[in-house]
């Protein structure tokens, strides 16, 4: 009876070990933001297991180095983050505490999207009185699909380096994504044609790449300085200005408090367009962009 039990247990342990082994065959990817998680899933397919450290509801500047995140970095084979100091308040600590050699800066397992593309708004002067600025430029690159294409190709190549056994799969997935994405860009650009040159108000300066891509014209920012919450003096100044020459819409990111935007919208009649700052749940990048573009376009000018 006891012997039987032992057999049962050892069989269970064996099964578990087998499972653990199979599970290990997948590459563990730690993505700092949901857009890189979505891209990793698309490019990695079944060969990867992706964890997103944040959701589109979270401000990626202000995440705490929670124990759960350390545990995830500890087991990661590849880290896919934005970089450009976006995660400076939490990622260095996770890396230091994880004791994981594979994902440290400079290693193959450390992939930063911002390193693959050119950045806009690189400040000439670094002074904190100008607000929370990023020395290497604006890090919110996920809103330029052309840059995403560059990042995808770099990430595809990185996956091949990290996991050469599945290189064919990664190559195939990258090719598939590139084709679909290029078609999608053409579609989006066509649908967004009427938006060209339209004036917009933003709550935080995190839409610069989309403004450049679609030719939107930013006329005002609700935050007086980057990262400093809107105050009444600044808002009332904006109100007088925007009453004279209103913008087409107020853009707010899903993680931001939209109180000031709502106030301004009520006073001026400018509609608020709240956009998901990254894919929600298991959305693909294409689904997410489709959603953003339809929200932008459907908004009557």
């Amino acid at each position: 009876m006891f012997n039987q039990r032992i057999k049962k247990y050892s069989f269970g342990v064996l099964l578990w070990l087998l499972y653990a082994n199979v599970a290990h065959a997948q590459i563990d990817i730690f993505a700092c933001e949901p857009e890189w998680a979505a891209l990793s899933r698309t490019l990695g397919g079944d060969a990867v297991k992706v964890y997103s450290a944040t959701t589109a509801q979270q401000d990626p500047h202000h995440i705490q180095a929670r124990p759960s995140l350390i545990a995830k970095v500890r087991r990661a084979d590849l880290l896919v983050c934005t970089g450009a100091e976006l995660e400076i308040g939490w990622l260095p600590l996770l890396l230091r505490k994880s004791g994981n050699g594979k994902v440290q800066p400079g290693q193959e397992g450390h992939f930063l999207a911002a390193d693959q593309v050119s950045l806009l708004e690189k400040p000439a002067v670094l002074d904190r009185s100008l607000g929370d600025i990023h020395a290497s430029g604006n890090p919110h690159i996920q809103f330029d699909p052309r840059r995403i294409l560059q990042i995808a190709s770099a990430l595809g190549n990185r996956l091949i380096i990290v996991d050469p056994a599945n290189s064919e799969l990664y190559q195939k997935n990258l090719q598939g994504f590139t084709e679909q994405w290029q078609q999608a860009i053409a579609r989006w650009e066509q649908s967004a044609h009427p938006l060209h040159g339209k004036p917009i108000v933003v709550s935080h300066n995190n839409w610069i790449y989309m403004e450049q891509w679609l030719g939107l014209k930013k006329v005002a920012v609700l935050e007086p300085k980057p990262g400093i919450p809107p105050n009444s003096t600044h808002l009332s100044k904006l109100l007088t200005r925007l009453k004279k020459s209103p913008a087409d819409m107020i853009l707010v990111a899903s993680y931001q408090n939209d109180k000031s935007a709502r106030w301004l919208s009520q006073k001026t009649g400018m509609p608020i367009v709240k956009l998901a700052f990254g894919p929600i749940k298991n959305q693909t990048l294409i689904q997410w962009f489709d959603q953003i573009m339809s929200l932008l376009v459907s908004n009557p000018p």
């Binding site: 970089g83 260095p92 593309v117 050119s118 670094l126 052309r146």
Partner: peptide, 20 residues
Amino acid sequence: IQVLEGSSLNSNGNSKGQSS
């Protein structure tokens, strides 16, 4: 233009690790 934009400004090392 896209290719040019990509290649000419495709600078590696925008983020200098933890801090500039």
